[in-house]
Simulated scan of single mutants.
Amino acid sequence: MTRDPDDRLVAASLGLPEATGSRRMDWAAMPREVTARIERLLGSPVAHAISQRGGFSEGLAARVLLGNGKGAFIKAASSVTAPAVADFHRREIAVSQRLPREVPAPRLLDAYDDGTWVVLAFEEIVGHLPAQPWQRDELDRVLAAVTDMAEVLTPSPMNEAVLSKPRLGGWLAMADDAAVRGRVEKLSPWAANHFDRLAALEENASLDGATLLHGDLYPFNIMLSGDRVFVVDWPHAWIGPRHCDVVTLVSSASLSGVDPRPIAENHPLTRDLDPARINEMLALHAGFLLRTAAAAGPAADPDIVAMMTALGLASLRWLRNTQP
């Protein structure tokens, strides 16, 4: 039997890489003047701090227990050592301050930006990430929450001026970058054979819409607490078609062996959609992820590159399965 050269796309399950970012900062390594400022923000000294190892951003992510018995979740980054993350944090402050309370997101308690350090203090959510591979009851809960979230966030409650541009597309840029294109085509011979179609899907894609989208809706940005679903980490929010977040989420669920097509055919945000709109989103999503992963230099976090590669190939797999 001849082996399919694109077996990474047709395998029953690629599996979500277990490792996440490896460049977190410990609370103990934070400058004392910064932790003192955090304590002033929260109105109580920090009695205990547990640095969180998951996630992908450089900088601090820590759960803190205060002397007054309250808890909080702290994110911080330095513009000197992690300028991109600091800018993400600045944008997340702007977004979080404007999210309606009906949105299932942790409340921003306070924040500051002294030009070097950017700090966010959120209410602490006691819960857990969705199990991977996905358990279907948890996936159904999250899919229902995404539907409700789209209702609350249409029309968008905030102006585009405070938001990022959608992190989508890459096939058109790869047309003029032979080295990156070659690396992506090695990852996916199917993409190599359908490059012009992928570029056309990107070029003709419509991103018109009025919904505030999370823009990074993967399992590692979701918390389950009791019967509630919380969506965390909003720096990449943008305004566009209301189906985009659910397509991203369901595409990533295919890494658990979940067939995304019947979900899309029945979900309220996608069931009445022209299939061409889903194909466009899949192409845009895969293009961004695979181009970014392929262009990453030797200093890039290998865990992030592996995650982006897996998620990009998952979107290509769904797209491939829609083609005649």
Rank of each mutant, 00 (worst) to 15 (best):
R3H: 13
S315D: 09
E39G: 02
A296L: 01
P324T: 12
L41A: 01
M307R: 10
R242G: 00
P17L: 06
L289D: 05
L139W: 06
F88G: 12
P83I: 10
F220A: 07
R23W: 12
N68M: 02
P324R: 11
S252A: 13
R242E: 08
T154L: 01
V119F: 09
T248V: 09
T270C: 12
F288Y: 14
D259L: 11
F288G: 07
S164G: 12
T81K: 12
L212M: 08
L249S: 11
L255K: 12
S44V: 02
L207D: 01
Q135W: 15
M174L: 09
M174E: 05
I263A: 01
A84E: 15
D148L: 14
A191K: 04
M25W: 07
S78P: 08
P5E: 06
L313C: 12
A47S: 07
H194D: 05
N221S: 07
R107M: 09
I263T: 06
L143F: 11
A19H: 04
L120N: 04
S188A: 02
M281Q: 15
L143T: 11
L172T: 10
F122D: 08
I93G: 00
A94I: 06
L249F: 07
R291Q: 14
M281W: 10
S22T: 08
S164F: 11
E102L: 14
L139A: 09
L66V: 04
R141L: 11
P104M: 15
A237G: 10
E202G: 03
I93K: 06
G182Q: 08
A61K: 07
D196W: 14
A150D: 09
G257D: 09
L255R: 14
S254D: 04
H214G: 05
D208P: 00
G69E: 03
E102G: 14
D245H: 00
V34S: 01
Q132D: 11
R90V: 02
P83C: 10
L201S: 04
A61V: 03
R271W: 04
P157S: 02
G69I: 00
M30Y: 05
P302N: 01
A286C: 11
R23Y: 11
E138V: 04
T147G: 10
V184K: 02
M174R: 06
L168Q: 08
Q52V: 13
W27E: 00
A192P: 00
S164H: 12
G209E: 04
I263G: 06
A49H: 13
L311E: 08
A150G: 07
L316M: 05
P31M: 03
A283D: 01
H267V: 04
A72H: 11
Y218V: 00
P133K: 10
Q323M: 14
T248P: 11
L213C: 00
H214R: 07
I278D: 03
V142K: 07
R107V: 14
V231I: 15
W190F: 09
A294S: 09
G15E: 01
R320E: 08
R291Y: 14
M149C: 15
A86E: 10
R37Y: 02
